[in-house]
Amino acid sequence: MAGFAALSVLLMFVDHVTDWLDKSRAAMTVAVTPVVVIADLPNRSARGLTEMLSSRDDLRRRITELESELTLFKVKTEKMAALAAENNRLRDLLGSAAKLQDNVLVAELIGVNPDPEEQEVVIDKGLVDDVFVGQPVLDSRGLMGQVVEVSRYTSRVLLISDQEHSVPVQVLRSNLRLIAQGTGIDQKLELQHVNSTADIRVGDQILSSGLGNRFPVGYPVGVVDQVVFEPGKPFAEVAASPTAQLDRSRHVLLVFTESRTPEATAFNSGGSDGNSGR
């Protein structure tokens, strides 16, 4: 007994301090992946059932709706492409580096961390899909989090609302740069070290600032919904709610920025930024 206890402690120490065990953990994750998949079955079949039970008319209406939405988005994308090209030409004139295009890979949620204190989800893409640790994850509305652990077929994503997670952000209106930290179960973000004279208001959009080189620039992170200046305190208390639907989204997007392909990441991994992993 004492031997196994000591072994556990040793393992924990090694796992906490080094990344030597990451490979074995990834291998063992493959072994328990069926458990995660089976646990997701009730949810999955419930969704399948609603789909089966929805009527032809409903489905037809949904298809029409989605098609019109798609046309709308296509028009918007074309406009965006033109704007992006123009933007890059202008940046070229100014002599600054061109903005990079981001590629995305769609992944599906297959599990959540059962501990409500830990804001983590498991997705169905892993090493075989070139997912890498530190990869930014979005949903259709905004930034969701980053990959913290990759195994062969699955990866673990730490959400921006986790207490151990921070994102470098900026306020869209005033370009004020801040750090947004998660608060855990209430799925709020806390903007840290906001000067009491800072230009920030309720309703301000906050975007990822791209500082720290982990998250791409300009993705929506949240909306400020509370600003409290308390006299006598050095900083204002500012809370924001995330734009991404952290507890709703079934489909998430993994971002591949050209400069941060797996090779490039391997080259400058251990990146010195404010984002935590574990």
């Binding site: 196994f4 924990m12 906490h16 501990d115 652990e149």
Partner: peptide, 19 residues
């Protein structure tokens, strides 16, 4: 150990508790 992997906790944490 398997539970540790499953929940993403430190390798050995649940192992110690279960032992």
């Amino acid at each position: 150990l398997l539970v540790d992997v499953l929940l993403g906790s430190l390798l050995g944490q649940h192992a110690l508790a279960y032992v």
